[in-house]
């Protein structure tokens, strides 16, 4: 289960994590590790729990059982008197700062322009001086190819541009782990490429652990170090993309891939 290129402590470790809504079990005793700097694509049919993995890691969802570890420390729990107890708000805020997330529907702040969106958290959370936060925001917007859109509001930008602002906004907090939750699913087909290009660029230029839930099989194949196939709240099969896409062993993986590839 250990990540192929991780040495020592993994960046993220799910240990027997269970999540359920009422009697519906979304994730069932999940054990999963992600190494530092690893790029992992999470694929699977809808309702398989793949998005929930990212949402739990971002602490948007509480877990019902198990522990999530982040950067060698517990995330969902904290140590008190030598025992692990559920994390309090202060612990969550300290740990959560290491993670950034990009959403399917962008979730940009509509009343702020592109630069303000990227400055908001560094200023209010990290107490960064405004001039410094602005400089950093502009630098990141340049990096995602939006150097000419600093003062544009989200409503004045295309979906692809909005998603690139959202990526810059997440990077402004200097995360170690970036989560991408179906970030191209809400985009018109002709805009998908520009967002994937930015993600490619992050992968090659920054030292980030990148986890992405995606339906873009071609991109997953080319970009990821490892592909995890989820089905019914469990990892059905995982391995390097050549293996998963080239010679899947599990019957469900084969069915899923042939269904997906047929559709495209």
């Amino acid at each position: 289960m250990t990540a192929p290129d991780s040495n020592g402590t993994p960046m993220v470790r799910f240990e027997n994590v269970t999540k359920s809504y009422g009697s519906f079990v979304v994730l069932d005793g999940l054990d999963l590790e992600f190494g530092a700097g690893e790029k992992v694509a999470i694929i699977g049919p809808s309702g398989s729990g793949k998005t929930t993995v990212l949402r739990m890691l971002m602490t948007l969802e509480r877990i019902n059982d198990g522990i999530i570890w982040l950067d060698g420390e517990p995330l969902t729990h904290m140590e008190r008197d030598g025992q692990l107890v559920p994390a309090n708000a202060a612990h969550l805020r300290r740990q959560r700062g290491k993670i950034g997330m990009v959403f399917q529907h962008f979730n940009l702040f509509p009343h702020m322009n592109a630069v303000q969106n990227c400055m908001e958290a560094p200023v209010t959370v990290l107490r960064m001086p405004k001039a410094e936060a602005r400089a950093r925001a502009c630098e990141l917007l340049e990096m995602v190819g939006l150097g000419d859109k600093f003062n544009h509001y989200p409503g004045q930008l295309s979906g692809g541009q909005q998603q690139r602002v959202a990526i810059a906004r997440a990077l402004a907090m200097r995360p170690k782990v970036m989560l991408f939750d179906e970030v191209t699913s809400a985009l018109d087909p002709e805009l998908i490429g520009e967002v994937l290009n930015v993600i490619r660029k992050l992968g090659s230029e920054l030292d980030l652990t990148m986890l992405m839930v995606t339906h873009q099989m071609g991109f997953a194949k080319e970009f990821a170090d490892r592909v995890c196939f989820f089905h019914s709240g469990k990892i059905c099969e995982q391995g390097p993309p050549e293996q998963i896409f080239g010679a899947p062993e599990n019957e469900r993986t084969k069915q899923f891939l042939s269904a997906v590839l047929e559709a495209t």
């Binding site: 971002m58 959403f103 958290a121 906004r169 997440a170 907090m173």
Partner: peptide, 10 residues
């Protein structure tokens, strides 16, 4: 919008 603020650690 709430989720974005959590993801930004606000």
């Amino acid at each position: 919008q709430w989720e974005a603020t959590i993801a930004l650690n606000m």
